[in-house]
């Protein structure tokens, strides 16, 4: 039982990262109707940027390595600008075109980012430092220790991943729910013609959507980088799980993306643990297939609810 709870806890931590990236994907999908297959590589790219600042080697020149949170913030700024520019230059011209066209464009971005990262920073994996310890009123954030919660132990890093993820989700929720710009973005996503008639500059809303999404992705990348080594294919696994999470929760549901991410994190962990040789004695299934198993879960869910757990059923009008 304790092992189960432990695995669930760890699963929740990785699941929060999947949820974050899934949130970024859903954000773009809801505001611009685009499925951004390059999301993971964009996050990877911005994480490399952060690494560059932290390591002090900016493309061959040496600078003083930065304090973690300064680098973190600068990276967020960089990510937002990058996202905004991408929307303006690459996505805007194909806006309104059929879905496949846009899919290919994002796949092209995927290839560009992956290769550009390898070109700039090399293919050798690098270690990404975790955030430094902070002590706030007796509670330690980040750092190497662990917290005991009942029968389980959760590392500080995992704990803060979850907290940061939740924090971002709350911030986004507040933004969309309570600010005029957030409201305008929601409206634009539903009906861009009406939005224009309200005086909303739809183009700016789209750009903002991409900037936000890149920002969220950047956070996800920096949170998970200490756990996996930083290399160009780093985000591939995360991206695919994030996609699966977004689909599982329903492509147009932000809470769905988060829930989907958590579920997948847990499932992945449980399958990884409980299908090892000591638990089941079949040869044809095992921890190596945990990716397959998680994805089987998705397919099964989609069969029952084709638009995801929380997705809206689209009306079929004749």
């Amino acid at each position: 039982m304790e092992l189960l709870l432990q695995q669930v806890m760890t699963g929740l931590a990785t699941g929060s990262v999947y949820g974050l990236v899934a949130l970024a994907i859903v954000l773009i999908y809801r505001s611009t109707d685009v499925i951004n297959f390059a999301q993971g590589q964009m996050a990877m790219f911005t994480t490399f940027f952060a690494w560059m600042l932290l390591d002090g080697s900016v493309l061959g020149h040496h600078i003083h390595p930065m304090q973690f949170w300064i680098a973190f913030t600068l990276t967020l700024v960089f990510a937002s600008i990058m996202g905004a520019l991408l929307e303006r230059i690459v996505i805007r011209p194909v806006e309104g075109r059929p879905i496949l066209t846009i899919v290919i464009v994002t796949l092209g971005l995927f290839a560009i980012f992956e290769n550009l990262a390898t070109w700039s920073w090399g293919g050798i994996p690098k270690a990404f430092p975790p955030p430094p310890e902070i002590h706030v009123s007796g509670i330690t954030f980040f750092g190497d220790g662990a917290l005991d919660i009942g029968p389980t132990v959760i590392s500080y890093h995992d704990l803060t991943i979850m907290l940061v993820a939740v924090g971002i989700m709350i911030a986004l929720y507040a933004f969309f729910q309570y600010t005029p710009v957030g409201l305008a973005m929601r409206g634009t996503a539903q009906n861009s013609v009406a939005a224009r008639l309200m005086g909303i500059r739809v183009g700016n809303m789209l750009t903002l959507g991409w900037a936000l999404s890149a920002l969220v992705g950047a956070v996800g990348g920096m949170l998970i980088a200490p756990l996996v080594l930083l290399q160009p294919p780093m985000m591939m696994g995360v991206l695919l799980y994030a996609f699966a999470a977004a689909v599982l929760g329903g492509m147009d549901s932000a809470p769905g993306a988060v829930v989907g991410g958590l579920i997948l994190g847990i499932v992945e962990n449980l399958v990884g643990t409980y299908t090892a040789k000591e638990y089941i004695h079949v040869d044809w299934f095992g921890p190596e297939l945990k990716l397959t198993a998680a994805l089987l879960v998705i397919v099964l869910v989609l069969l029952v609810r084709p638009t995801g757990l929380f997705g809206r059923r689209t009306l079929r009008r004749v």
Binding site: P180, L183, A184, R186, G187, Q190, N191, V193, A194, A195, L197, M198, G199, I200
Partner: peptide
């Protein structure tokens, strides 16, 4: 719109998933 003209389109074109209040608020964007 900012010159003082408002268009109430054919078929209303409301923001279907937003509330009445939110629709009105956006009108004053």
């Amino acid at each position: 719109v900012s010159l003082g003209m408002s268009h109430v389109p054919e078929n209303r074109q409301l923001f279907a998933e937003l509330t009445v209040l939110e629709n009105l608020r956006l009108g004053a964007y």
